[in-house]
Write a protein that binds this DNA or RNA. Structure first.
Lengths: 261, 261
DNA sequence: CATATTCGTGAACAGCGTTTGCTAACGGTG
DNA sequence: CACCGTTAGCAAACGCTGTTCACGAATATG
């Protein structure tokens, strides 16, 4: 808020005063510690006192950096959305530009892989808001989530552009549904300005399925009876690919034993 | 554990001594209060001290009835599975016996309705285990959940029996997937002893989608941008019905404006 | 150098889960 | 009825939590 102080004998080069630098470093350390506690003990195990203790200071001191535990949790949640978006984007970029099919599959698998290797984070991001005060200000996390979403849906956008799958005629959709789909498309940020509602519906359906399998796996609502969820995920991935007009290719690592396709 | 005391001047009619009766009443009151707090303040707002306070006693007293807060939460979670199973079963029973299509649709809608009208409960049941100690004994809730699942999947079982939809040939499924599907079928309790894996896969796919839409709605991971999720749910329901060979009929209440179907 | 801002602390309040010893009531028996 | 064991419930205490406040000390600014 305050303009960068013109003072300072030291290099004000980075437009960052010495004070601001150490301040930001401390804030970063706080968030790193919080994140580590989240991973180690779950969201219930994140406490200001424990963080302060580990950093060699006292809890009230943290209030110079963060307005409270809720805000801290919201803050690291926003960071995690950013991180996940990067992971997906990197996976996407790791494939040849023109290989749309490969890029899609790789990105979706990257999403799942991040989810199952970051269960506490995923639970906070995609599970119910259980710990936070219902009146807490979560707009920053919401905003980051929206940015993640757009990164994600941009992938699908290519498919729409390439007209990979047959769209259901817009007239076949109930108007109430069409209205919701349009509002969704507008907010989520499709590059094509006027995507047909039918396309949005197919994509939404896919997103629901992806969300469903991954949540089920991370929240362990099936794997206590299924064990290895990967075949199930791959099966769903295959179904989704079919619906999207994407050529499915089995996972390389584990010997596929795939279908004749 | 102890055999019913042969004593008692009063009616031992119900095989329940006076002491046991008031004891069970108190336990019931504890669980009711906990449930109410869960609904009012969310899972984070359920505390032994607050429960005791409201009941006019002190927290340590509750330990005569419950070994701790975790066990209490697990206990009411099990009850909630029971309740949800009943609701679904009642919805099912409310339709004419032979109207399989109607029974399916009604039951699925009952599931969603319960979920969105019992968000805190649903979050605890189907969301990540965020509050409980990871080493807590949740077998009773798991068992209740399994019973709920079997109630639920029994519905689909009829469809398999009636051969409503074309099964994917078992040979088309990767062996790893087939193994998981079989283990799933065995545990979840299908009435048909030897359901083909292809059928189980279709049903699992549907369950994933149902879980996905409902979680998304309850956890509010889309409705901040969509508003009314009902059209989306109905759309998914319609898709699922199609995959299951079930004739979809639009929701009666709200004027459908439905497709030409 | 003097002054203003920031950082961090210690103490305190209110809440939490849980354990420990105690009292008082209750249930069944002689 | 009197006796006695079982049980219910309580007060106190320990250690944990978030948060507020007043204060001192270090730092940056004029």
């Amino acid at each position: 808020m305050t303009k960068p102080p013109v003072t300072s004998d030291h290099r004000t080069g980075g437009t960052l005063s010495r004070r601001e630098r150490v301040r930001e470093a401390t804030l970063a350390e706080i968030k790193e510690t919080a994140r580590r506690h989240l991973v180690e003990f779950g969201v219930a195990g994140v406490s200001l006192r424990a963080i302060a203790r580990e950093m060699g200071m006292t809890a009230p001191g943290l209030y110079r950096y963060v307005p409270g535990i809720d805000a801290l949790l919201v803050s690291i949640t926003a960071d995690m959305y950013e991180e996940l978006a990067d992971v997906v984007a990197e996976a996407d970029a790791s494939m040849p530009e023109e290989d749309t099919d490969g890029r899609i599959l790789t990105s979706l698998r990257a999403f799942r892989n991040w989810a199952i290797s970051h269960q506490p984070e995923f639970s906070v991001m995609f599970g119910p808001r259980t710990r936070l005060d219902p009146e807490a200000d979560i707009t920053s996390a919401l905003e980051a989530g929206r940015r993640f979403g757009s990164t994600f849906f941009t992938l699908f956008d290519r498919l729409v552009a390439e007209e990979r799958f047959a769209l259901p005629a817009d007239d076949d959709l109930p108007v109430a549904l069409r209205r919701e789909l349009r509002s969704f498309a507008d907010t989520v940020g499709f590059s094509s300005p006027n995507v047909p509602e039918g396309a949005v519906m197919v994509l939404t359906t896919c997103w629901v399925r992806l969300y469903g399998v991954v949540c089920m796996e991370v929240f362990q609502h099936l794997n206590f009876v299924v064990g290895d969820m990967e075949p199930l995920f791959e099966s769903e991935l295959r179904n989704m690919a079919t619906d999207l007009g994407v050529r499915y290719s089995p996972l390389e690592g584990a010997g596929g034993q795939a279908a004749k396709a």
